[in-house]
Amino acid sequence: MSRDSTDAQGKRLGQILAASTRSFTAQAQELHRPPPLGALVRAEGPTLSSSAGVANPGIYAVVMGSKTESVEGRLPVATGWELRDGAAVLREEPHLSKLLATTFEAAVVAHDAGEGMRVGLAPRPAPLYGFVQECPPEADVAQALAASLDFLPLLLSAAPDLAEEAAAACLRLLAEGQRDPEAFLLRAGKRLAVLLARDPARLESALRRLAK
């Protein structure tokens, strides 16, 4: 499979506004419509002539969380109390939407290297203003990650406070692309059990999330 950006497997989700080696933050294309927790996304990697033969390498990341807030750096002012619900408020006062932005944060788990996708951090972070695309569970990259599960340690160390929640969510999403989702979840659970064995409380909450 060729991995250049024109081969858009999934739809465009957002644009990168901050990036580090470990993670990036992107603004969602639509307000209140970030990709779900645990979703696998693809960001455009740096296009350098030396990037080992990959024209447009991708950086793959798992959504660790998202938020919607005022773009002006202060809290918005409450309004539209007479209306039925929040959606109606935004419909009545469309300019408000311009003052708000939804952003999501994603932890890097893999990247395109010369010989294909490789689990691990990319050598350089994603450039700003690059677009972020959906990377659905049926995609080759998602399949490869699901097969090896080697990205789990990286994911669990990305944001220690809720990593197991994001990891469990990610695994459930990946399971949708598997021929035998139940067997996949069992295998993934077994990997989590080893990785989180020293922390039974986190393991328990991850497994509870996987089981349902």
Partner: peptide, 21 residues
């Protein structure tokens, strides 16, 4: 882990833990 067994021997947790942790 060994001393707080999952509720049921056939639960998802029990199956996950068997052979791993």
């Amino acid at each position: 882990l060994a001393k707080t067994p999952p509720d049921r021997a056939d639960s998802f947790s029990a199956r996950v833990l068997a052979g791993t942790a």
